[in-house]
């Protein structure tokens, strides 16, 4: 990471959007390029710090390997009806999604 500021191009923005599954309108792309560039330049300030001898910290609890028995916890089981209750598209009591394969 260089310590000069980051300048994202419109193409960069579209690439990030694709990775993030976000669709952008044409008029948004320019603004996002500017905004994201300034935020990314700002967060790049961490480059000033020497962290070569530090371990990364993923979470602050210090807990490790928290497990539970392989048992059903009834209070977290939803009926099929409950599970489907917010589905925008259902078919045969299943969630309906876009086709993954083309039908030739």
């Amino acid at each position: 990471m260089s310590s000069t500021s980051t300048n994202l191009s419109n193409a960069d923005v579209l690439k990030i959007a694709k990775l993030a599954h976000i669709t952008l309108k044409d008029e948004e792309i320019n603004t996002l390029a500017t905004e994201l560039s300034s935020i990314i330049s700002y967060i790049g300030k961490l480059d000033e710090l020497d962290t070569s001898s530090v371990a990364p910290m993923n979470q602050v609890t210090g807990l490790r390997n928290v497990t539970r028995g392989d048992e059903i916890t009834p209070e977290t089981v939803l009926t099929q009806e409950e599970a489907l209750s917010n589905a925008p598209q259902k078919k045969n009591n299943l969630f309906e999604v876009d086709a993954v394969f083309d039908n030739d």
Binding site: V13, A20, L36, I40, I43, L46, P56, M57
Partner: peptide, 23 residues
């Protein structure tokens, strides 16, 4: 979402995300 995607993406993960974990 897009900042997060960028900093986690290949080529940037170490410089941003992993660095931030150390800080």
């Amino acid at each position: 979402i897009m900042i997060g995607t960028y900093t986690l993406s290949s080529g940037y993960y170490d410089a941003y995300y992993n660095k931030a974990l150390k800080v």
